[in-house]
Simulated scan of single mutants.
Amino acid sequence: MTHMNAASLFDANAIGNFWFRYLHVLAGITWIGLLYYFNLVQVPGLAAYGDEGKARNITITQIATRALWWFRWASVATLATGLLIVGVAPDYMQDFMNHTEVADFPLNAKNAAISVGMTLGILMAANVWMIIWKNQKVVIANATNVLSGGEANPDAATSGRRAMLASRQNMIFSVSMLFFMVGAAHYYDSYFSASSSDANTFMLISIVIIALLQLNALGKFGGIKAGNKMLWPYESQKNAIISGVVLWAVFFIASIVLMRA
């Protein structure tokens, strides 16, 4: 048995490849778990209140506010620990998607997969803070004001819809994000192989698809009002689940075409 000193348990390799990765997964479970809670439980639950406006507002002020606190800071923790993995793990970015030897082509596929996962994760975190939380603050303030006897804010419904669209988009993205995050090290480096050109082509195609979907969720293709057929993926949790699986299938098929050995 090889004996190692205690310091080696916390060297740069251990910190980058295990400790930050462990914290990354822990924070990610909290973040994505709450994302699914909002989309699969809270949103349809609040809709089921019907005309019970007071009960809905109490739920928003007493439950949603707490969940949103953990939700948004878990996204920060997930993003921060992910970036720390990249920064601390030895040689993580060395020859990133630029391996020229055929024997190293699986590393190009792995790098392309993790790049798509990282792109989705960073965009999802941006959605949390720049769209979801920004608009949910309006909804929460309105609920608090109405419970105190004040007038309802006419902009609250629009803000709520903007937050919902971004949240559903994150749910759609999450299926592929989790697949590529896990698959990069446990699937793509074992069963896929790609030249630098093919890996970059896959990455470029993925970014274009991601950008178009993000713009759609922002209402750039016909607005955010109900009735816009472009918003079908976001109008129910069922539609979001279907869309998430379809998006994953598109990415997966593209990776097979471009990066399968």
Results as ranks from 00 to 15, higher is better:
143 A>G: 13
95 D>R: 14
145 N>R: 14
89 A>T: 15
98 N>C: 04
97 M>R: 10
116 V>Q: 07
156 A>Q: 09
90 P>G: 04
117 G>P: 04
139 V>F: 05
146 V>S: 01
130 M>Q: 15
117 G>M: 07
112 A>D: 00
102 V>E: 10
138 V>F: 07
108 N>Y: 03
92 Y>N: 03
133 W>Q: 15
152 A>G: 11
142 N>G: 02
108 N>G: 05
90 P>L: 04
117 G>L: 09
134 K>I: 02
126 A>W: 10
128 V>G: 08
90 P>I: 04
114 I>S: 01
135 N>E: 09
105 F>V: 02
147 L>A: 01
110 K>A: 15
149 G>F: 09
138 V>M: 13
148 S>E: 12
117 G>K: 09
144 T>H: 11
157 A>G: 09
153 N>F: 04
95 D>T: 08
148 S>T: 06
88 V>K: 08
138 V>R: 14
112 A>Q: 08
108 N>M: 01
150 G>A: 09
131 I>S: 11
103 A>F: 06
136 Q>C: 11
156 A>Y: 03
97 M>G: 01
140 I>S: 04
87 G>Y: 00
89 A>I: 04
109 A>S: 14
144 T>I: 04
110 K>M: 14
95 D>G: 01
128 V>T: 14
111 N>G: 07
145 N>E: 13
94 Q>H: 11
132 I>R: 08
140 I>V: 14
141 A>M: 00
139 V>P: 01
93 M>H: 00
99 H>Q: 12
109 A>T: 11
112 A>R: 03
114 I>E: 00
159 S>Q: 06
161 R>Y: 11
136 Q>Y: 09
129 W>Q: 11
137 K>W: 03
116 V>G: 09
140 I>Q: 13
92 Y>R: 04
129 W>K: 01
90 P>S: 06
140 I>D: 13
124 M>P: 10
90 P>V: 07
122 I>R: 06
88 V>I: 14
127 N>D: 12
113 A>E: 05
137 K>S: 09
